[in-house]
Design a protein around this nucleic acid. Structure first.
Lengths: 223, 223
DNA sequence: GTGGAAACGGAAGACCTGCTCCACTTAGCT
DNA sequence: AGCTAAGTGGAGCAGGTCTTCCGTTTCCAC
């Protein structure tokens, strides 16, 4: 979660960075991970620089475009999602695998705004992060097919549906609304299963009359 | 949808506006409805003024705070949602009423970013729009109880759950993704019903390999 | 028609944000 | 140690948005 590719930055022919530059690069990546998770992918570079303890100029020199930073960061985060999907697909109980993946995915996206945005961009086929989708889609598709062949998942849904469902639920609520998200994952899963006689019990949520800060986050306005 | 309270603006003791002022006020409200629907509640006042064909100063004089404008606008929009919920609750077939309300609500929120934000704020208990929730919550609760008493809706969900579900699905996709939203409303409804033997058929969506612009919209960063 | 209060509009100032640039510092080689 | 190229940081500029302010226009009561 915090290891960083040491030097070779895509182009293996590039001369290695100086030691201090490499150290700062790592600091910037760590800071960006933190800031992007909290504020989303268009957080100010100033903030990233402040958290990293370097000047803005340094951030811009190392990552001239925002995409460069995002790309460097989320390669590994996407890997984590792919790994989790494969793990879920390997579960001997296919339904349990699917359930686990949905819960985990919703929580991961809720905890990290940047991740949510990257996955959305990957789904949308954005050039630079498209490689993310190319790895992600097969993994989720495999999970879906696995559950469908076992006859527990309805046959008319695709991996894309699962991705969108995770994204939808992941947008619900603030940081401490984990219970609420579990509730909606359970609800969606009751819609995803092939058939059922009774509803799956939902996690109870105690919301006070004036403590309904649990709604879906507002959309952002386009630039 | 386009009628506007002529003069009495909250305070009945206020002297009536001059005729031109009243005309401009109506123009501003119409423009704001359009602009807020497209761009969300924090669209620039400049844009509202431009669309209304008045100067920015006029907008600021009539509505010194953004909240004043939002409040004046969405009183009636919330009324429309309440009316739709009551209509749905009055349906002799309670399940059909619920299905119709979810489809309508998701589409309404997708078509109007401003409405989505206001409903979110209302759910969150925001002071000025709190009155909206006070009217909305009972209407949706009645719809839910109606369906539950008829034994078609699972008993462990509340009106709030319905509101959040509508909001979640309403965030999916862009303007022409109505089909996709229908798909997820159907899926959620299959999770909401008391029991079912087979999945409800989902509306088919044809998405090309690189036309996956169907993901949930990104979250916005806080000010 | 006239006087004066109300309303108008948009230029201008305050502010905020993304990015560049260059005088200075530092690592690493000899 | 001394030299040089690589690296640094933050002041400052450009471009954008929000809000105010005041000279001009419009309405309406008389």
């Amino acid at each position: 979660m915090s290891s960083v590719t040491p030097a070779a930055d895509g182009d293996p022919a590039a001369r290695p960075l100086r030691k201090d530059a490499e150290r700062n690069r790592a600091r910037i990546l760590a800071a960006a991970r933190e800031v992007f998770a909290a504020q989303g992918l268009d957080a100010g570079f100033d903030e990233v620089a402040r958290v990293a303890g370097v000047g803005v100029g340094t951030v811009y020199r190392r990552f001239p475009e925002r995409r460069d930073l995002v790309e460097a960061l989320f390669q590994e985060e996407v890997d984590a999602v792919v790994a989790r999907a494969e793990e879920a697909a390997a579960d001997p109980d296919p339904w349990r695998g699917l359930v686990g993946f949905l819960h985990w995915g919703a929580e991961a996206q809720a905890a990290d705004r940047g991740l949510a945005q990257v996955l959305a961009a990957a789904g949308r086929g954005h050039e630079r992060v498209a490689s993310g989708r190319d790895r992600l889609a097969p993994a989720v598709d495999a999970l879906v097919r696995h559950a469908q062949r076992a006859g527990v998942l309805r046959p008319d849904v695709s991996g894309l549906d699962i991705g969108i469902a995770v994204a939808m639920v992941g947008r619900v609520g603030g940081p401490d609304r984990a219970r609420l998200r579990e509730r909606y994952v359970t609800l969606v899963l009751d819609g995803l299963c092939l058939r059922r006689d009774a509803p799956t019990p939902l996690p109870q949520v105690a919301v006070g009359e004036d403590d309904l800060a649990c709604v879906v986050e507002p959309v952002r306005r386009p630039r």
